[in-house]
Each structure stands twice: as C-alpha cells, then as structure tokens.
Design a protein around this nucleic acid. Structure first.
Length: 405
RNA sequence: GCGUCGGUGGCAGAGUGGUCAAUUGCAAUUGGCUGUAAACCAAUCGCCCUUGCGGCUACGUAGGUUCGAAUCCUACCCGGCGCA
C-alpha cells in the first residue's frame, strides 16, 4: 500500500478531464485542485490559519529554498514542512529542478516558462541583483551527475544531485515529493532539450531508486516523476512513455510550453501516462491554462501567480483581471470581485485596498493574495463540480466568455 | 532697512555659457509577472504634431551681454539666515 493513492470519481466523456480524490496520510485532496505555492514554507502574505477559509487543500514548498534556509534538518526537527508552518493538511515539495532554470539559464533574464508568441528570445534584461548577476552570470551549472548552485542569498556554493534532492525532501517530509529534474529554458533548441530530457530520465531513475531505498520514507511519502521535453511534442511523448514505465506514484509535467500548442502537448502526454495515477502540472495557473490542463487530464496545478500578482495589486475576478492600484479604483467602493464570496470581498472595497497599496501598507498585498488564492482554488473547485455534473464545457465557455470579454 | 545666501519641471534636488526639455530620487500614469532570485520589474512622465537626432514654450519676473544663457550682468519680486 502506497502512502498516497488516487481514486477517480468521474471521468468526463468528451475529454481526458476527470474528478477524483488524492488520498494522503495528511488528508484527501479533491481533484482537480489548485495547489498553493509555499516555496519557503509560507504562502507569501497568508497565514496557514487561513488556508481552510481560502479553500487551500494543499501547498507545495521548495527543496532548494528550505535547504538554504532554515536547512532541511531544522524542518525535520519541527516535524516536517507542514507541521513547521502550522498546516495539518497534505503537502508537496518541489525538487529544486525549477531552480536549475531560474538560477541557470533564466538568471538575470526576462524569461518565463512560456515561449513568447513572436519570440526573439533574450530580449530585455532585468537583473534583480546586478552584483550577483555580473559576478556569476548564472547561479546554476548542470552536469551529468547533478547541478552546482551558487546561493542567490550569499553566493555560497552548493551541490544538488538526484540523491541529495530526495534526501532533503525526505527530511522536509512532505506527502508528495518530486524527482530531481532539469527544467530547461523555453529558448532551448531541440538538441539541448533532448539532451536535458534524457538526463532528466536518468535522474528520474536515480531519484526513484533513492526514494524506494529508504524504507521508512518510502512508506510515508509518494514520489512523482517529471515529464520534460519542452515545447517539442515528440520529446514530450517520449518522456511520458519513459517515465510511465518507471512506476512513480504520480507524474508531474514540467518545463516550458509554447502558448499555442499547450493543449495538444498535454493531451498527448497524458494519454501516455498511466490513467490511474495523479498528474500534476507544474507551475501553470492562469485560468485559461487551467481549463486546458483539466481537459487534458491534469489533476493538480500549482502556480505563483495568485500570490505574485496579488502582491503587486493584480486581482483575479470573474470579469477578468484588474490592477487595483490603478487610478480608476480610488473611489470604487465595490468589492474586488462582485461575484466573489471570499472574506476579503465581503468586508473590503477596491477603494480601501487601492489605498493600502498606494500607502504601501502590508495588508494590501495580503488581502489581494487572499482573494486571488480563494479565486483560484474556487475556480478549480467549480471546474471539479462541473465535471461531476457533466457540464464541464458549458462551465468553461461561460466562465471564459466573461473572463476574457 | 542693511548684509548675506537662495529661487530649476507635482515635490525634493543636480546642473553653473553650447551636445539641456534639463542627471537622480520620490510622486504620478500605464503595463508585465505561469514548479517565487520578485512586498518586484518595465515603459511613459512640459505642450503640439505627419513621433522626428521635428516644432513650440520653459529653469522667480523684466531687461541686457553673447553667434549661443538654467548658467554671466542689471533691476525688481519672493524666501531663509544674520544685524538693526
């Protein structure tokens, strides 16, 4: 008996969409589900005490960040990442594979996971820490055995291998851990993408072995393998097939996509993955993309956008996104989203939150993040309900019709 | 009243004869963010237009010197400080 198991409640006839329950030792996750990102054992700006009110069933923390601070041993002594942050529900940890990209090829550049539409890559350079960027160029260097990181905090040198990532994730103690992978730049060419994918497969074997070898942890934590292959459909399929043969407890789909064919790629990928195992789409979370993911059989999503946007006043509403800091909301005393039932919308106005942002009061980002998290978790909850009610497409079309007006 | 220092774009504050419509910060306006290097980043920020190494008006006010003035001179107005 594995520590996590997945049961499908309902499969949607017209697509790969399904509604299910992901069982863990810390509770069930009703899927599809939105996973709040809690990189450093905190969903930025939001207390774990608010999770249930916000519809947060589960969070995903980060191996690299918690390893650097406070150190995985501290988290282990605390009783694991969930207990450490005062959350009793299910948790996940990402392996640090994304940092191979964000501190490597992505460092100092304005690159997202998505390949821009008419992309000439490497355009704007926005350096957050110019000194670090110029002295190191990039902070992550990949080789066959693993990745060498220069800490973005103090420049110290660190080494991650698949075995080390798993060891740290054992200490962090989340219910679901991820194999150590290489998240490539969306700008990477086919040749490099294939090379990185093959390496990720070798690392997947090692990650899985490292986990299964640890008797104790193997009984407590489930492990997901991560499909790579970038924007190339044939690589994606190859990756999915390869990983499907490895008997992971679930599958993550990582890396970059081109906006145009994300649906097609996800759809074919998920057809290669075992149907009865949960699939997590890493780092994707715009409402449009979530519908696409669900239709392609994704069960869980995580994304920084609700909190990152929230921190700078970007608000999700049923009628699209708005920037609450904009002048037009100065005296708009309506709630952020008139159709939202969250505690923020019940109690506060756009004008007030606008004022908080203008005055640089920390409550502004907090309220905005709370609303956004609620918005996303409940959007996915509504999607789940629509699958159970057999009207997924209808709900999708209605929602997007309004949202994208 | 005398002396002295100073008056620059919404604010603060650079500039002290040409490449200055004027550095920089803040404010303002708008946009971006997809496994968090992010409470962040970017663009715009005198007026006009056919958006150009374009035209016009600008550095307290009015004159003057000069090929050329935010920068030099004179007078006046206003403010700080000192002395009466």
């Amino acid at each position: 008996m594995r520590p996590i198991s997945f049961s499908i409640e309902k499969e949607h006839p017209g697509s790969l969409a399904r509604a299910g329950v992901l069982h863990t030792e810390h509770g069930d996750i009703k899927t599809p589900a939105f996973v709040a990102v809690g990189t450093k054992a905190t969903v930025k700006g939001i207390s774990s005490a608010q999770f249930s009110e916000l519809g947060v069933q589960t969070i995903i923390a980060n191996t690299y960040h918690l390893y650097l601070s406070p150190g995985e041993q501290t988290v282990e002594k605390a009783g694991g990442v969930g207990k450490f942050m005062g959350f009793s529900g299910p948790t996940m940890t990402d392996s640090g594979g994304f940092q191979v990209f964000s501190l490597g090829e992505g460092f100092g550049k304005k690159l997202s996971k998505f390949l821009p539409e008419n992309a000439s890559q490497e355009e704007g350079v926005s350096v957050y820490n110019e000194e670090l960027a110029t002295s190191h160029g990039k902070l992550a260097i990949v080789d066959e055995d693993g990745v060498s990181f220069t800490s973005h905090i103090n420049g110290s040198l660190h080494r991650f291998t698949p075995e080390r990532s798993i060891e740290i994730q054992h200490a962090l103690g989340a219910d679901i851990i991820f194999a150590f992978d290489e998240c490539t730049s969306p700008a990477a060419d086919y040749e490099y993408q294939k090379e990185a994918m093959d390496r990720t497969h070798r690392w997947a074997v090692r990650s899985l072995a490292a986990h299964r070898q640890n008797f104790e942890k193997n009984k407590q934590q489930g492990i997901y393998g991560i499909v790579q292959g970038g924007r190339f459909a044939d690589l994606r399929i190859e990756s999915a097939k390869t990983l499907a043969n490895m008997d992971f407890d679930g599958y993550g789909i990582g890396g970059s996509f081109s906006k145009a064919d994300i649906l097609g790629i996800l759809d074919t990928v998920d057809r290669e993955l075992p149907k009865d195992k949960p699939r997590h789409l890493l780092g994707i979370g715009e409402p449009e993309d979530i519908f696409i993911g669900v239709a392609a059989g994704i069960d869980t999503f995580d994304c920084v956008l609700p909190t990152r946007n929230g921190r700078s006043g970007g608000i999700y509403t049923n009628n699209g996104k708005l920037l609450v800091e904009n002048a037009e909301y100065k005296e708009d005393f309506s709630p952020l989203d008139t159709e939202c039932d969250c505690s923020v919308c019940k109690q506060f106005s756009r004008a007030y939150i606008h004022h908080l942002f203008r005055s640089k009061e920390m409550l502004g980002p907090t309220l905005a993040s709370m609303h956004n998290i609620y918005f996303l978790t409940h959007l996915v909850e509504r999607i789940r309900a629509s699958i159970l009610d057999d009207n997924f497409e209808k709900f999708r079309d209605e929602f997007l019709g309004k949202y994208k007006r």
